[in-house]
């Protein structure tokens, strides 16, 4: 029995550890030997109420390569939402035309609500600052693929740890493994207390730092995120810290052989361009992994494996 069949994916917590590992195994199988047109005759609706080129193209590529059809819109301006249609009405209508809905929306909780009103499964491709579970799954896949395991790793998370939803979801998912976390961020963007409490309850070790130049040699994974100017109430504070959270090539000198640099992208300037040539840079492969992982998620939910 495929417990993922017809299941919606709204939050990473909707999937058990077992289900997550099954997705990762399926993605790995798809990467090694493409499964062919297993989505033939399936129609997937991609409703991007908020634009996101990267995620949308990754979903489209995933579906197209498996022979499925994809329809939808890339921004709310070209949908009936611009005429004032409610989310519920849009979802109920579109569910008539498709086997599965992928949606991104700027309103938090919109994907959960959509999954409750929709007769077909819903995959959340990002709901405001809340959840982006397919990103978390592709991050997990990238970590497992490069490290051979998810267990016992030293994970460095760098940059905006306060608002970064990818950081929060990844942290929750990795807390099921024997992870050590190192959080590196400016004071204004520290990891929220609720996540620290969560880790303490689970007995997971974590450390907080202002800088990572000295300690990066211990990392297995460095997960970089963007520090955005608009997150700072005081622009001077931003100017003071903006260069501390930039990864430069010379910082990789003493790092472990197995360390890999991840980034959910888009990158602005938090990873120097010259890092791209290092075999330790992994962010573009990470984006490619998103295609296999999304293929695995969609095929599992549509039960065509």
């Amino acid at each position: 029995m495929n417990s993922l069949a017809a299941k919606s994916l709204v939050s990473i917590n909707d999937f058990s550890t077992d289900e997550i590992e099954r997705i990762l195994d399926t993605a790995s199988r798809f990467e090694q030997s493409p499964p062919g047109k297993i989505l033939d005759s399936k129609v997937i609706a991609a409703l991007f109420f908020e634009p996101s080129t990267r995620t949308r193209l990754s979903f489209e590529s995933a579906v197209n390569r498996l022979g499925g059809r994809i329809l939808g819109f890339a921004e709310a301006g070209t949908s009936s939402v611009s005429k004032g249609e409610s989310l519920k009405d849009t979802i109920l209508t579109v569910s008539n035309y498709s086997d599965l809905i992928v949606m991104r929306h700027s309103i938090e909780g919109s994907a959960r609500y959509a999954s409750e009103v929709s007769p077909v499964p819903v995959i959340n491709a990002g709901d405001g600052s809340n959840q982006h579970p397919t990103q978390t799954l592709l991050d997990l896949y990238s970590i497992k693929k490069t490290q051979g395991t998810l267990d016992g790793l030293n994970i460095f998370m760098v940059g905006d740890l306060k608002y970064g939803r990818t950081v929060h979801s990844l942290l929750m998912a990795l807390s099921n493994y024997n992870t050590t976390f190192n959080f590196i961020s400016p004071a204004e963007l520290r990891i929220p207390d609720e996540y620290k409490l969560f880790l303490e309850k689970k007995g997971i070790k974590y450390y907080e730092h202002d800088d990572f130049t000295e300690i990066i040699s211990r990392a297995d994974i460095v997960y970089m995120t963007r520090v955005q100017r608009e997150r700072f109430s005081d622009p001077l504070e931003y100017e003071k810290v903006k260069n501390i959270y930039v990864l430069r090539k010379e910082m990789l000198g003493n790092t472990k052989e197995n360390v890999r640099i991840l980034h959910p992208l888009p990158r602005v300037n938090e990873i120097d361009r010259d890092v791209d040539d290092s075999p330790k840079a992994y962010y573009f492969e990470q984006a490619l992994n998103g295609v296999y992982v999304r293929q695995a998620i969609i095929s599992s939910i549509l039960d065509v494996l």
Binding site: S86, G109, S110, Y113, D127, G128, N130
Partner: peptide, 26 residues
């Protein structure tokens, strides 16, 4: 934003902390 009935799980009574079923904020 939409006429959705609110739903919370009570994660703590003292101090009172309600977790939204939809946006997951406290």
């Amino acid at each position: 934003h939409e006429p959705v009935k609110t739903r919370f799980s009570i994660i703590s009574q003292k101090p009172l902390r309600l977790k939204c079923h939809y946006c997951e904020k406290i």
